[in-house]
């Protein structure tokens, strides 16, 4: 696919919707940029997959979600966590492995979760979220809660068996689940065109008798519109949908990836199709913001990330004496 260019779509959006989406995208961008630097400097344990370049998808999707709606996320999950409302200080502290982290340092980058926000966890297993999202949808249905579950996954995940199992089941039961494919075009190091029988991944929805749509995942307005339709349908009992949001990783698979599998020219072209730049073009053209407003948004994000880093750096590590806490549930902890 050729990189899309030009301003993002604002049809159907208002400043009240578009500006918070933009702010979320910028917050993710600044956060992930700093995470990349911290990892490169050896400050973070483990390894890190950043969301750089894909910000429009999480930010625009989660704008449709209630606090109690569910999302399942991936190994590339920081953006989903921020978009669902996780405070960045708790996210950053988790990346540092601190006791003050979202998961008390037990999970790290690939497992960040906030169940109080319906964020059912990033997942270190590609495709780990498909069935969990279906189960959350089943649960919402059983409890008549009106909640929906959004399953974020990548083009790599689409070739896992559970993709097919979960889409089929969600469709059979008309579950309130929206399957959002963040098609960044590379499954780890391998271009999706080499491993998928169909080029247009939305075609796969046909086999499960659900709506499928391919869209420009670097256009926040396009994502907002498509997800809005899908979430509304899911919430009103019409069942699931598959959205193939075409995007691009600005970084490699993980921070430090030598990226021998893709051309520098291709990367440059897609960087020019940056979702934040394209949204800003549209916002300025519409007269909803000016350069000073944009700078204020970026400055606020920089201050937020700096504060998150400060919080994480000054937080304590978990006490080794607690290494076996949370394996099993203590009797009486869960309300009967």
């Amino acid at each position: 696919m050729r990189p899309p260019t030009g301003p993002a779509t604002l049809a159907g959006l208002s400043p009240e919707v578009a500006l918070p989406i933009h702010a979320t995208m910028v917050r993710i961008r600044v956060f992930e940029t700093r995470v990349t630097e911290l990892f490169a400097a050896g400050k973070l344990p483990g390894f890190v997959h950043t969301y750089l370049g894909q910000e429009a998808i999480a930010a625009a999707t989660c704008r449709h979600l209630r606090d109690d709606d569910y999302i399942t996320s991936t190994h590339r999950g920081h953006g989903h966590a921020v978009a669902k409302g996780m405070p960045t200080n708790r996210l950053m502290a988790e990346l540092f492995g601190r006791e003050t982290g979202a998961n008390r340092g037990r999970g790290g980058s690939m497992h960040v979760a906030d169940f109080s926000l319906g964020m059912l966890g990033a997942n270190g297993i590609v495709g780990g979220g498909f069935g969990i999202a279906a189960g959350a949808g089943l649960s919402a249905r059983r409890r008549s809660s009106g909640q929906v579950a959004v399953c974020f996954f990548g083009d790599g995940g689409i070739n896992k068996g559970p993709f097919h199992e979960a889409l089929n089941f969600a469709s059979v039961k008309a579950l309130p689940v929206v399957f959002v494919c963040e098609n960044n075009q590379y499954a780890q190091f391998t271009a999706i065109g080499r491993t998928s029988a169909v080029e247009d991944l939305a075609v796969r929805a046909t086999g499960y008798d659900m709506p499928g749509m391919t869209l420009d995942g670097n256009d926040a307005g396009a994502v907002y519109a498509a997800v809005g339709t899908a979430v509304e349908a899911a919430r009103s009992g019409e069942g699931p949908a598959l959205l193939n949001c075409v995007t691009y990783r600005h970084s490699g698979h993980y921070v430090g990836d030598a990226e021998v599998y893709r051309d520098a020219a291709e990367v440059e072209q897609w960087r020019a199709a940056d979702p934040i730049g394209r949204l800003e073009l549209a916002l300025v053209a519409a007269g909803w913001v000016d350069a000073a407003d944009l700078e204020a948004t970026w400055e606020a994000a920089r201050a937020e990330t700096a504060a998150a880093e400060e919080f994480a750096v000054t937080s304590v590590d978990p006490d080794p004496a607690t290494a076996l806490d949370y394996v099993y549930t203590p009797a009486g902890e869960v309300a009967p």
């Binding site: 059912l120 498909f130 559970p162």
Partner: peptide
């Protein structure tokens, strides 16, 4: 799917 749906339902 049976197992992961059970996990999703159990967590919610």
């Amino acid at each position: 799917l049976i197992m992961s749906a059970a996990v999703g339902a159990a967590m919610t």
